[in-house]
Amino acid sequence: TSEGHLGASRTVCDLKEPFAGLSDVSISEDIPVEGDISVPMGSSRSDDDHFSTLDEPVKETILRDLRAVGTKFVHVLYPKRSSALLRDWDLWGPLLLCVTLALLLQGGAADKDDQGGPQFAEVFVIVWFGSIIITLNSKLLGGTISFFQSLCVLGYCIMPLTVAMAVCRLVLLSISGTVSFAVRLALVTASFGWSTFASTAFLADSQPPNRKALVVYPVFLFYFVIGWMVLTFSLPQ
């Protein structure tokens, strides 16, 4: 226990230097709880990490983050039961995908009359509010997943549909008529299935086994609406 005392006193003086006024209140409360001794040590180590990334070029920082987003894309494309998407969640990927999808859906045929077409904000609202509702639903049904983890998974799993949207635009440019519709229908159906399958692969583990169907249904509805928006998109004449 003498080592513990030493560690505690060291953390005390570590903390005291920058926040002399604050540390004092918290420490007088914290010291009886000796189990928390290692926490300040961990934070000081992470401080070292920050210092090491502080003087690196901005390019490296951005590339590292982009690489992290890219690996998560791969996880969605090949949805094996890994916890990478859940462990270090981020909302950059979902934001990127959502903006891309909204931009691709912008400028449809119906937009000319200033109505009907999926406006940018509408796509945004559907994606974010939809995932929030699904997350709340899964929490209410007794899921053990955290709020942002679920948002992250649902956001990343839009990727197949975003890809389908990009391809659909190309198809619309090149082919027309029934063939085009058939191709798009096949594309959207495949990517819709893919999205649903991938998100359930990630989310299902956190749910009680007897209620998986109840959690999957809103996910299905969510991707169905997005997929249907992609399918009904048409270029202006």
Partner: peptide, 22 residues
């Protein structure tokens, strides 16, 4: 209290004693 912080912030002090004083 703030003055006390500055003077007593030595790492050689016993934690238990310091706590009691605080």
């Amino acid at each position: 209290m703030e003055n006390m912080d500055d003077t007593s912030g030595s790492s050689f002090e016993d934690v238990g004693e310091m706590h009691q004083r605080m």
